[in-house]
């Protein structure tokens, strides 16, 4: 019971810190970074559900992100659907595409699946580039409407400034975190992990890997699409670049550095790398080279060589050593 109490306390403290951040730091640029870190946390958590917990290497995750963003933006601009519903509509449309990408995963694995998923995202990016009537091509959709204000009595909450949007993203991250933790801790999650560790072994105890793979691709895509919707109404610009491979590569790096197959890893990775990438951006202006990708690549190699379990693994080891010393 005391462990449970400590857990609840920890959550309350974390929540309080998250709520108070905008009051302490009023800088708009910092809040912008915080929003992006939140969006990437959702993306990385959802990618990790596939790669870390089910062992399916999906290198087309950015496609779901883009689909969610376009869906939510187009629905709001052309049908006037409330962006609040659009966020979930974006997730649902992405989930349909996730189900579609699940089918090749039934027959392919490892590098073959990885290449297929790259192709999938690349095709959809080209569709977004060329379907000018719907997407305005490479110009992208600009002027995506803001989230509509919420009125509670006399108080109206607008979502114009970064610090207001920040709370929406925090809620989105918590929603994703809740769902994914629930899934991983359930019979469903154990089944996924069994398949990851040994597919033939899983089949031998009556698990049908095909149906589980389709389900997990669908769920993972839903959250990526949801993150896409969050981005669309925040940046107010949706372009084919969202579906590009480098976005998936960012997600992959965040998950690997944070710790694959853990819950804390993707959060840690997404937040620290988003901050790092902003720091490097200012250096790029001085150095005039694309240093961000170089650093990402280097960090990825170092992670694979020296800390397979990522930052989470390092923290665990240090914690164990501190405890052992006492």
């Amino acid at each position: 019971m005391s462990a449970r109490l400590r857990n609840i306390l920890l959550w309350i403290v974390a929540l309080a810190v998250l709520i108070l951040i905008p009051f302490v730091v009023e800088d708009r640029y910092f809040m912008h970074i915080a929003v992006m870190a939140g969006i990437f946390t959702i993306l990385t958590l959802s990618w990790n559900l596939l790669a870390g917990y089910t062992g399916q290497l999906n290198l087309g995750h950015a496609a779901f992100y883009g689909i969610g963003a376009y869906t939510s933006a187009i629905l709001a601009m052309q049908t006037g659907l409330s962006p609040w519903l659009g966020l979930f509509a974006g997730g649902l449309v992405a989930a349909v595409f996730g189900l579609m990408l699940g089918f090749p995963a039934l027959r392919l694995s490892g590098p073959y699946l990885a290449i297929t998923t790259i192709g999938f995202a690349e095709i959809l990016r080209l569709v977004a580039m060329n379907w000018v009537d719907l997407t305005r091509g490479s110009l992208g959709l600009s002027g995506v409407p803001l989230l509509t204000p919420i009125k509670i009595g006399d108080f109206t909450m607008q979502f114009y400034f970064e610090r207001d949007y920040y709370y929406v993203v925090v809620a989105g991250v918590l929603f994703t975190l809740f769902c994914i933790r629930r899934l991983i801790g359930s019979e469903f999650g154990v089944t996924l992990q069994a398949m990851r560790d040994d597919e033939a072994g899983a089949q031998s105890i009556g698990i049908n890997p095909s149906s589980y793979k389709l389900a997990v691709f669908t769920i993972s895509a839903f959250f990526a699409g949801f993150a896409g919707g969050l981005f669309a109404h925040f940046a107010r610009l949706v372009s084919p670049e969202l579906l590009a491979l480098h976005n998936t590569f960012d997600i992959l790096t965040m998950a690997m550095i944070g710790g694959l197959g853990t819950i804390a890893g993707p959060i840690l990775g997404a937040v620290s790398l988003t901050i790092l990438s902003e720091a490097l951006r200012s250096m790029e202006e001085v150095l005039k080279i694309d240093i961000r990708l170089i650093v990402y690549g280097l960090l990825l190699i170092l992670t694979i060589l020296f800390m397979r379990e990522g930052l989470v693994g390092v923290i665990k080891n240090v914690w164990a050593r501190v405890k052992g010393d006492r």
């Binding site: 019979e187 154990v190 089944t191 992990q193 899983a202 105890i205 009556g206 698990i207 049908n208 997990v216």
Partner: peptide, 12 residues
């Protein structure tokens, strides 16, 4: 436990 999940024939 993983081996007992699909005893109930539930599906994902």
């Amino acid at each position: 436990l993983a081996a007992m999940v699909d005893r109930k024939h539930k599906g994902p």
